[in-house]
């Protein structure tokens, strides 16, 4: 029984990890190529979820909604890049933090102005509900398996995009030497808009997919944003490989910590105290992990460049 529970929890950890990867890959790309720290990335996650919920409700099709969510987030990303972000590339990180912090406020309250204060309804389509029985009589929700599948597909797609396409070549060039791509005659501002929209679209996809499992509400992007930052810092900022590794690490450590720390403390403490201490420590676990990693590897595990 405890082995099947462990397998199930590992799956949960991987599923959380793949969704974190969707967020973190965009963040890390944007930082790697443009050197921009974007606190408003969680807002695109929220935009994706809201657009998907609204369109799914009016068309009745989750897939159309999902497409609309990705497009809406990418469009919002492109728009924000054109109006605000491109003025920030040459500014210190501090200005970027302030501007994108302001964007969070604008997106959150703007969404509330349009959609109201109540959470929206968004559920997985009926053909994705239910569960499959895994070996060892573990029941696992189909939808979560699909999420893992989507995450894997996106990882492969991103890998191919970056290693095999012209756009990918430019992204790599931008990551290693920002001056060079200008010299190569690449239209940098178009490239930047494109990369930003790509990152926003990925965040929107994550928001839409996860929104069907969670509550679609204002501010839903903030906890994910913080987690995604932990992920890219652990992995090494600018590194897609690092983001993938960091996302899986954070997903698994967080999930297992939440389950097993309270159980662990029960071995030598009264149950009510053990759950309290265990839960408190579990909440801090990934930050402890991050601090330990950075103490030994100040540029993360897979530092791409500085």
């Amino acid at each position: 029984m405890s082995v099947t529970l462990l397998i199930e929890q590992l799956l949960n950890g991987v599923q959380l990890g793949t969704m974190l990867f969707l967020m973190a890959s965009g963040l890390t790309l944007i930082f790697g190529v443009m050197g921009l720290i974007n606190l408003a990335h969680g807002s695109f996650y929220m935009v994706g979820a809201y657009a998907t919920a609204a369109i799914t409700a009016s068309t009745g099709s989750f897939l159309i909604g999902l497409g609309a969510g990705i497009v809406a987030a990418a469009l919002a990303g492109a728009l924000v890049e054109l109006i605000v972000i491109r003025r920030l590339y040459h500014r210190p990180h501090l200005d970027q933090v302030l501007a994108t912090f302001a964007l969070i406020l604008i997106f959150s309250e703007g969404t509330r102005l349009i959609f109201g204060s109540s959470p929206l309804r968004l559920s997985p389509p009926s053909w994705l509900t239910g569960f499959v029985t895994l070996p060892g009589d573990t029941r696992y929700p189909i939808y979560r398996l699909v999420l893992i599948g989507v995450g894997v597909a996106i990882s492969i797609g991103l890998y191919l995009l970056i290693s095999r396409t012209r756009l990918g070549m430019r992204i790599r060039a931008g990551e290693s030497d920002r001056e060079m791509i200008g010299a190569l005659g690449v239209n940098i501002s178009k490239l930047y808009t494109l990369v930003f929209a790509l990152g926003a679209g990925l965040a929107g996809l994550a928001g839409a997919l996860v929104g069907a499992l969670q509550s679609v509400q204002v501010g839903m992007g903030e906890p994910v944003l913080i987690l995604a930052f932990v992920v890219i810092v652990i992995g090494g900022i600018g590194s897609i490989k690092g983001a993938l590794f960091g996302a899986l690490l954070v997903g698994i450590v967080d999930t297992l910590g939440r389950v097993y720390l309270p159980i662990f403390f029960r071995a030598f403490m009264p149950p009510s105290e053990a759950t309290g201490v265990g839960a408190a420590l579990a909440a801090m676990l990934i930050y402890i992990l991050m601090a330990v990693i950075l103490a030994f590897k100040p540029k993360g595990l897979f530092a791409a460049h500085d």
Binding site: Q9, Q15, L213, S215, P223, T255, R258, T275, A279
Partner: peptide
């Protein structure tokens, strides 16, 4: 008795328990 984190969004771990 199970305790979750405040503001937690994913309950897969608790549901499995």
């Amino acid at each position: 008795e199970l305790y979750t984190q405040m503001g937690q969004t994913d309950y897969a771990a608790e549901i499995a328990q």
